[in-house]
Design a protein around this nucleic acid. Structure first.
Lengths: 356, 356
DNA sequence: TTGAAAGCGTTACCAT
DNA sequence: ATGGTAACGCTTTCAA
């Protein structure tokens, strides 16, 4: 009763068919689960397949069907808790819908993003979810549209692009945060983002190509303007693209004589560094410095003091994007949908009145 | 000079060949970058390809070459910072080596893991990196081996499986931590892990199927035994598989009369919940309770007090696993390698002498 | 250097 | 219900 050792070259429908004594087409029908076959034949084929340890070749299947059962996902950095949570949302929905996910990090670099999309398209993914690094460059995104494959944008949209988009209500969140800070008497309020400009200086929101962040900064500046504060542009700091950069920026800023009395961090990674920097310098939160961070990262509730955050429905952001994509993959062509998920300010203890 | 709108059906080498006035084979040679062609022909084909906006079909290419340029990755939960960091290490190496990554979450569930591997194999990934949920069940892993595709194990190995493996020095880390705690007079030391058993009770390390965790618990118990502490088994708690479960376990434990004076958390997610629970109960760290957590998550340095952790080279874990895999993908068959990365205890302020 | 034709493993269409 | 055969888009002999 010795089994033949499985051959190195994989067994195909033809092999199974031969062993079962039926035609390739028939074997394919039962193996692929389509068409109609008699019970007797079905059993024979199934048995043969098991005996031979048959493994379907999805590649070949995709070749003929035109569907790969795969969706491509391009995010800035999977290491960032924001994206890893969003990706979890995506993969959960994808798996349930029978799709598998190819993940590529862009490192927030447009060139890498383009390459990623090219790769994904070449691999014939059925659809893509992208969190575009820059809104300004979207040739490659239009390329996707032209390829006929559905695309969904995550966290960052573009008015110019008629594709399904899921973003958070960033502008409102920033406005609310700014109002709150203003009401507490803060006038020197800094905004720190990982986005960068060519000369690492901020002048106007149009310098910021990352949609979600631009909207926040616009909200921040608008509310300041409404309150009669001019030239708040000089309080927005760009280029906090790594913990080291952030530390440097925060430290310099907090050591300056006219240091801010409040800081808004554009994501939790930045928020964490600001927190550290202020501790290191010996500034007390919130008496010396108020801190608000975007993204309700798990640690924010456990510091002393716990930090006030803008809670974004990150998992649902990914989940929703995947849902839109899957619907479009299954269903008919409909209008591009733009869903905006609500944010919420979680007041904790890192915000207080501005020091006198 | 009007361009024809790109056709919905994709353009193939045949189309390009026709337009360039050469044979399919020749066009394929320049498009695929193999064989030899005259400069004149090369230009013609390139021009035609550009004009037609030709996109290679990687699927078809894979069909004939047998290589998909893809590696499959199966991890417990991408949302866990441990895995998201490891995955970053993997994707970085993979991309640089020209591979793209298909990511699947197993949710630490063996059934899901099996399905994932089946899917990956069907998609003809060139190799796999798996962080096996259980060491006890490895039929599906051997299946991979039999399929002829290289496999690398991440963070969790199996003596029984002769495949490339990258793990951290978990046992030593646990031993060192335990010794330290013992030296400080702790006798009631709890270990909390997400791993679970059928009856949610711990009896012996063999109950624990996750290799890395089992090794830690073995180290913990051994050192305790050496110190003359018997039956420390009752201090290891399993089933902290979600923040809610962890909170429940930690709270119950800390409210009991004979509560532990020290807790070892098996990962940073658990560590965080324990930290929260002890705060909520009003226990002071480290005077009432010492806390050590595995994984040097970013937040651990910023709490009050900052928490002592076992620093694992998580990024390098992923990086190394990917390197081993890629080497095997390119090179010849060599012996299975087992690399063990050193850990390091980062002493902060969450550990102190046991309360009297 | 170039071309013709044979695969790769499926599915899909058309007979039977 | 089943079988024969042509796609799918590419690479790879093998000749010329």
């Amino acid at each position: 009763m010795d089994q033949n050792p499985p051959r190195s070259t994989s067994v195909t429908v033809a092999d199974v068919a031969r062993r079962a004594g039926v035609s390739k087409a028939t074997a394919a029908r039962v193996l692929g689960g389509y068409g109609t076959v008699s019970d007797r034949v079905r059993e024979a084929v199934t048995a043969a397949a098991r005996a031979l340890d048959y493994r379907p070749n999805e590649l070949a299947r995709s070749m003929t069907t035109g569907r790969s059962g795969t969706i491509g996902v391009v995010v800035g950095d999977i290491e960032n808790p924001f994206f890893s949570l969003a990706v979890r949302g995506i993969t959960d929905v994808a798996r349930q819908a029978g799709f598998t996910v190819i993940l590529i990090n862009s490192g927030e670099d447009v060139t890498a993003e383009k390459a990623a999309i090219r790769t994904l398209l070449a691999k014939r993914v059925d659809g893509l979810i992208v969190s575009p690094a820059k809104e300004s460059e979207l040739d490659h995104l239009q390329e996707v549209a032209r390829s006929g494959r559905p695309l969904a944008l995550l966290d960052r949209g573009s008015e110019a692009l008629a594709v399904d988009t899921v973003i958070a209500d960033d502008r409102n969140a920033a406005e609310a945060v700014t109002r709150r800070l203003l009401a507490l008497g803060h006038r020197r309020i800094a905004y720190i983002t990982a986005c960068d400009t060519s000369d690492h200086l901020f002048r106007t929101p149009t310098d910021i190509n990352t949609g979600s962040v631009r909207r926040r900064i616009e909200g921040f500046l608008d509310i300041c303007r409404e309150a009669g504060l001019a030239e708040m542009e000089r309080w927005v700091h760009v280029g906090a693209s790594s913990p080291e950069h952030t530390r440097r920026i925060a430290t310099d800023m907090l050591r300056a004589s006219g240091r801010p009395t409040a800081i808004i961090a554009s994501d939790s990674v930045i928020g964490l560094e600001v927190f550290k920097a202020s501790c290191a310098i010996g500034l007390a939160i919130p008496s010396d410095l108020s801190l608000v961070s975007f993204h309700d990262a798990d640690w924010t509730s456990v510091t002393s003091p716990p930090v006030t955050v803008v809670r974004q429905p990150v998992y649902r952001l990914g989940e929703r994007a995947a849902q839109l994509l899957v619907e479009r993959l299954n269903g008919e062509g409909m209008e591009a949908r733009r869903v905006v998920l609500q944010t919420e300010i979680v007041e904790r203890a890192s915000v207080a009145e501005a020091p006198a």
